[in-house]
């Protein structure tokens, strides 16, 4: 990666504590510009804290964060203009209508595409003149996404945007998002506790587990780096000398290994196949923090 294109989102040593509880510990993440990155982790892993830190709502306890090269600062209008944040539970003003919110965005943002937001609402059949309190959960999320996109952000930070949606609304939401990404210079970091939700639209992945980054990088690279080895039950010490066994399952006669390949591998006794992303992620969750799969190592 050349210096001309700094990562859209970058954190180094990012740590966030709430009293005695550590929500994020020593997180290093780089999301290259133009990517759609899935921020995966179980509930309480630190996804929300990370996103809130990146959009300036929370301040890091240690370490630093940068979005498009700027430190997240709630009083920096230029920083704020470049980000779009969609909080969990999509908070909007309950008594205001979609039209009110669209007008409101126009007053709060120098760059604002009200027509695009109205068109999006029209295409989805969401009434503009009804108070938010009387819209369905899916309609609210679509409105919130439309408002976030109308801001024309360069980095979009979405916190569990599809969690509350039914399959159709989820499909519509992801379609709208893909369309926005295709249209222009936009980087997305969006969280979910399910890989499956985001796999279709993402090409980059950050896995948080128990406050730490467990895996971060290009999804294709990560997949290419791992192999599932299947064969008769063997002693695995030879493999462990050159590679890292992420997960081993043994039956009486057969062994299945998920291995991070740290070098070339030649052993005809093993049947080699590509792992499934979800399977790979589950294998990494709950393992020791020393075991990491990051873009840094892949380069």
């Amino acid at each position: 990666m050349s210096m001309a294109h700094p990562p859209a989102v970058e954190t180094r040593g990012l740590t966030k504590r709430f009293g005695a509880r550590t929500a994020l510990e020593d997180c290093r993440i780089e999301v290259p510009a133009g990517r759609v990155s899935a921020l995966i982790g179980s509930n309480g892993a630190g996804k929300t804290t990370l996103l809130r830190t990146l959009c300036g709502l929370a301040r890091p306890s240690e370490g630093e964060a940068a979005v498009l090269g700027r430190r997240p600062d709630p009083d920096d209008a230029a920083f704020l203009a470049d980000i779009g944040f969609l909080a969990q539970d999509v908070p909007l003003y309950r008594r205001m209508t979609a039209a009110d919110h669209i007008a409101l965005g126009g007053h709060l943002n120098a760059r604002w595409d009200a027509d695009a937001a109205r068109e999006r609402m029209g295409a989805l059949g969401i009434p503009l003149d009804r108070p938010v309190a009387r819209l369905s959960g899916g309609q609210r999320t679509q409105l919130a996404l439309a408002l976030t996109l109308a801001k024309k952000p360069r980095v979009l930070l979405l916190d569990e945007p599809v969690a509350a949606l039914d399959p159709l609304a989820r499909h519509q939401f992801l379609a709208a998002l893909s369309e926005a990404v295709a249209e222009g210079d936009l980087t997305v970091l969006m969280s979910s506790h399910l890989v499956h939700d985001l796999e279709r639209v993402s090409d980059h992945l950050v896995l948080l587990d128990a406050s730490r980054v467990r895996m971060a990088g290009d999804i294709d690279d990560i997949l290419a780096r791992h192999r599932v080895l299947m064969g008769p039950r063997h002693d695995t010490t030879a493999i462990e000398r050159d590679h890292t066994v992420v997960k081993a399952t043994h039956t009486a006669r057969q062994s299945t290994l998920l291995v991070r390949m740290d070098g070339p591998f030649q052993d005809p006794r093993w049947e080699v196949s590509e792992p499934d992303l979800e399977e790979l992620i589950l294998a990494y969750m709950g393992r020791s923090p020393a075991l990491l799969a990051t873009t840094g190592e892949l380069r």
Binding site: R52, C55, G56, L57, P74, D75, D76, A77, L80, A81, I83, G84, F85, A87, D89, P91, L92, Y93, R94, G105, L108, N109, A110, R111, A144, K151
Partner: peptide, 16 residues
């Protein structure tokens, strides 16, 4: 209580 500070503080108007 409504969580709307998260919406309004991520628009382009400085929080102050």
């Amino acid at each position: 209580e409504q969580g709307t500070q998260q919406f309004v503080w991520t628009q382009s108007v400085p929080r102050r």
